[in-house]
Design a protein around this nucleic acid. Sequence first.
DNA 1: TCTTATTTTTAGCCTTACCTAAAACCCTAA
DNA 2: TTAGGGTTTTAGGTAAGGCTAAAAATAAGA
Lengths: 220, 220
Amino acid sequence: MTLTTAEENYLKAIYHLSDGATKSVSTNDVAAEMKTKPASVSDMLRKLGDKEVIEYRKYYGVNITEEGKKRALQTIRKHRLWEVFLVDKLQFAWDEVHEVAEELEHIQSPLLIQRLDAYLNYPKFDPHGDPIPDEYGDVRARPRLALNEMDVDQSGQIVAVKDSSAAFLKYLDKVGAYIGARIKILDKVEFDGSMEILVDQKKTLFMSKDVAANILAIQS
Amino acid sequence: MTLTTAEENYLKAIYHLSDGATKSVSTNDVAAEMKTKPASVSDMLRKLGDKEVIEYRKYYGVNITEEGKKRALQTIRKHRLWEVFLVDKLQFAWDEVHEVAEELEHIQSPLLIQRLDAYLNYPKFDPHGDPIPDEYGDVRARPRLALNEMDVDQSGQIVAVKDSSAAFLKYLDKVGAYIGARIKILDKVEFDGSMEILVDQKKTLFMSKDVAANILAIQS
DNA sequence: TCTTATTTTTAGCCTTACCTAAAACCCTAA
DNA sequence: TTAGGGTTTTAGGTAAGGCTAAAAATAAGA
Ligand SMILES: [Mn+2]
Ligand SMILES: [Mn+2]
Ligand SMILES: [Mn+2]
Ligand SMILES: [Mn+2]
């Protein structure tokens, strides 16, 4: 059973909202994520239910099925591989890739993705630090922690961002935070949760709690 | 005014059928080329006429406008650049690229095409020898001649194929004809138009008139 | 010129993916 | 246990892009 572009986009949204296939997801949440109306979502959920990529019980939200999870991960794989291509090969900035990848991910050609993967040297993470599922949908996830959850004096390395919006990424570029940077928490202000962070042992960065919450690190 | 994917495909077909914007094109011809019904074509012609990329007079066929020609050439440019990418970078065979390029050509991102062009080193021809329009739609066309139009003892070089179907390209691979090959016409059989051709000064090839008519060369 | 054959358009219908407005449902708090 | 209030679905509509069947226009032959 093949999925249309719209169906793939919905399924991906449902997968993300359900935190990797565990939680059940409400119609309103899908509508917000997809920027459509709940009425349109109801329509689409019926279709996705018929195709058995989600389990749909009217009025009770949806759960993604195993088959649906597999499909969603394939689309995510394609999206992230294209993002790597755009940044590594075509010199796109990391805040310029998402919209284009949102289109490229729907190109139907298993050979294309297989070759692209090889050409990029089987990357494990996209430009935002998100893991790239392999062709079987397996993801090697790293245990990640938002900066605001780390304690003073803890060290680590930035590995991903939670928010991939151009605005946020441009801000990180400006202040000099990037994926791979080694960091140490110097201070946390209790009043507003803002933080002071040492980057690469030389640069001090002040950031709001909101910003810190959208930067993910592994501890070391 | 932006064109949908379907509109881009129709416009491209009309451009090709009109031999580079000169001839006028009939509804039936478009239907055959697009593998749709004439009734569907009538609908689409009205839309394309409204968008002023063609001039449409009911019952009298269509002519592509200057604006339409420009749009068609942009789509063709994208199609051929992607074909070069697939062959040069992803090791696709020249008979495997057309379908995928037919999808990729509709990705909307001027930056993407500009970067892709640079990344491929501004190629002038696609894997089938067809010229790639520049970003202004200019095509540097070479005067090309089908092999069956050449005379005995004439020499030249294969520069393109007229038929890009997988079947034909695979056949050329098998017999060892390729773009760039130096050729000389050794003999032409008057009865059926079949020919004997010397390839790269060492290999003799027999081909039917049908095959010869689909191989394009420049004379030398 | 008249009649027929061919081409093209129109009319009406389908599916997908969206919308608004109204109805139905679920849940919770009085 | 029932009345709101929020959520979700249904009903009905639009636009794009296809289809078939029928009507209309053009082209061709006698
Ligand atoms: Mn992305
Ligand atoms: Mn998408
Ligand atoms: Mn196409
Ligand atoms: Mn080509």
